[in-house]
Structures are given as structure tokens and as C-alpha cells.
């Protein structure tokens, strides 16, 4: 894992206990066990995964960050030179959305090249356990319109939208002419890939 070349740095930002780690865990190892002890969790804060987009392999390095407010000042060191940022907020916690806005502001200010993917986590809690939704869809969409980014609502428990989210990140990376290497052929957009469209695309 450490030896392989990583093309794209994806950084996860979000409040503590906001579901960042579960998101990575679900994506990298396809599992979600809230109560069962994990095996081989070593290195969960960093993960690398290869994705194929239209015949091109993209290796994503996924960086988990500490979300606690006491480390807020250092988050800039983490997202430096990231090409994509998943800004997480807990759909059942309205304060987490305010924190998400903070990171979005930071990213827009310091890393203009970094694409932002606004992600509401723990969707299953609303769907299955009927917990009250604290962050309204319209509010999120309005905000996303303002900052021109995509919105996903995910559940690490059911796996909803998670593969789609990461696939979209890889796809955006490959399609971005800035990242295209000279030897890469034209016409790399593969429309046949299923489920690539996000739940709610505000762009």
C-alpha cells in the first residue's frame, strides 16, 4: 500500500464522530459493524484504493483528519495539495453542518484547486430509525448552489451512495484537463458506468 504511487489525494473533513471513518471503512473494506470488534484496522486513518475510470487507473489516497476543534488550526496542513475534499456532516446533527461550512470556507480560501463534495452522513438513522432530520435538504442545496459543489447523502451502514461518491471523485479527476497526462488518450469519458450520477446534483 505504501509503495504504490498515489495519483490523487482525497481529504476527509468533518466534525468529530461525524462518520468520516465509517465512510472510509465502508469504502475500503466494504464493512460496517458498529458493535463487532474490527480486525486489521491498522492504518484506518489512511487508505489507498485503485479505481478504474474508462480504462484509466486512478489510485486515490484517502486522508482522514482529526475533526476536533482543538486541531482546527492544523487542518490546513492536512488539506494542502489535496485535489478533492469530502466535507462531512451528520444529517442528525445541525452543529455539524455549521462546522462543515467552516471547512468549506477554509478550502475555498486556501485550496482553490480542491474540489469539494458536501456529504451528509448517517442517512440510515433517518430512514430506518426514524430519527429527526436536523439538516434540511433545501438548506444544504442552497448552500451547495452558492459554493458550486455536489451534495451526497450517504449511509455507511447500508453503503448507500458511497461507491458513487468516490467514483465521481475519480471521474472528475480524470476528466479535469489539468490532471490529464500527455500520453492519456482523448475520449476517456465512459458513460456506460452505472450509478455514477449523484443523488442530488445541484450543478
Amino acid at each position: 500500500m505504501s509503495g504504490s504511487r498515489v495519483d490523487l489525494k482525497v481529504v476527509l473533513l468533518g466534525k468529530e464522530a461525524g462518520g468520516k471513518t465509517s465512510l472510509v471503512e465502508r469504502y475500503l473494506h466494504d464493512r460496517f459493524h458498529p458493535n463487532v470488534p474490527y480486525q486489521n484496522t491498522i492504518g484506518a486513518a489512511f487508505g489507498a484504493k485503485k479505481v478504474e475510470v474508462g480504462g484509466i487507473n486512478v489510485t486515490m489516497g484517502i486522508w482522514d483528519t482529526a475533526g476536533s476543534e482543538r486541531y482546527e488550526a492544523m487542518s490546513r496542513i492536512y488539506y494542502r495539495s489535496a485535489r478533492a475534499a469530502i466535507v462531512c456532516f451528520d444529517l442528525t446533527d445541525d452543529t455539524s453542518f455549521d462546522r462543515a461550512k467552516f471547512w468549506v470556507d477554509e478550502l475555498l480560501k486556501n485550496e482553490p484547486d480542491c474540489k469539494i463534495y458536501l456529504t451528509g452522513t448517517k442517512y440510515d438513522l433517518i430512514e430506518e430509525e426514524k430519527r429527526p432530520r436536523k439538516v434540511e435538504e433545501t438548506k444544504v442545496e442552497e448552500y451547495a448552489d452558492e459554493i458550486h459543489c455536489l451534495v451526497y447523502e450517504t449511509s455507511s451502514k447500508t453503503g448507500q451512495n458511497i461507491k458513487e461518491l468516490f467514483y465521481k471523485i475519480a471521474q472528475d479527476y480524470v476528466e479535469d484537463p489539468k490532471n490529464r497526462e500527455p500520453e492519456v488518450d482523448e475520449g476517456i469519458i465512459d458513460s456506460s458506468q452505472p450509478n455514477t450520477k449523484p443523488d442530488k446534483c445541484s450543478c
Partner: peptide, 9 residues
């Protein structure tokens, strides 16, 4: 028991 995250690390 949970996977270790950057918040713990």
C-alpha cells in the same frame, strides 16, 4: 473496538 480514526490517532 471501532476502527481507529485520525481523531484517536
Amino acid at each position: 473496538d471501532a476502527p481507529a480514526s485520525a481523531d484517536d490517532f
